[in-house]
């Protein structure tokens, strides 16, 4: 039993630490990256992964050390997973539709081509 609780302590500590590090990296990405779309990459993914790791660490801690099966934490994980990609997608789409330019070193832009086609048809 002591061995199991020792191992689970390590796993929980690593999960929470990994989540914190991932959130920190996504914050660095927010500062460093040059345009909206790239920053949106960093924000969406970093938040999702970091929050996921921290919440699952908390869930395991409650389950193994306090004998509480926290369904709220599981639901929280599911909701973050469902909502964050949609938020990222809508931010990017709204930015593109209102004409925010891509970074100047961007290579290709198929969407501009097809949108222009649509407009010329009308």
């Amino acid at each position: 039993m002591a061995v199991i609780s020792g191992i689970s302590e390590w796993v929980i500590a690593l999960l929470v630490l990994l989540g914190a590090v991932l959130s920190f990296l996504s914050a660095i990405g927010l500062v460093r990256l040059p345009d909206i779309y790239l920053r949106s990459h960093a924000a969406t993914k970093g938040a999702t992964l970091g929050v996921l790791c921290i919440l699952s660490g908390a869930f395991l801690y409650l389950m193994l050390f306090l004998d509480i099966l926290s369904v709220k934490l599981l639901l929280g994980i599911v909701f973050v997973f469902i909502t964050s990609p949609v938020a990222g997608h809508l931010n990017g789409r709204a930015a593109y539709r209102s004409g925010v330019p891509l970074w100047e070193k961007s290579v290709q832009d198929d969407l501009r081509r097809d949108l222009n086609k649509e407009i010329s048809k009308e």
């Binding site: 993914k45 990609p85 990222g88 990017g92 097809d114």
Partner: peptide, 30 residues
């Protein structure tokens, strides 16, 4: 599919076309 693409790092779905068979994906490294 577009939610899964949004969640994998390096790709972000920007737009789904009217007829729903083309996704426009912004890639970090193309």
């Amino acid at each position: 599919l577009s939610c899964l693409i949004c969640l994998t790092p390096g790709t972000l779905t920007l737009e789904v076309s009217e007829d729903g068979d083309t996704l426009y994906i912004h890639a970090m490294n193309i």
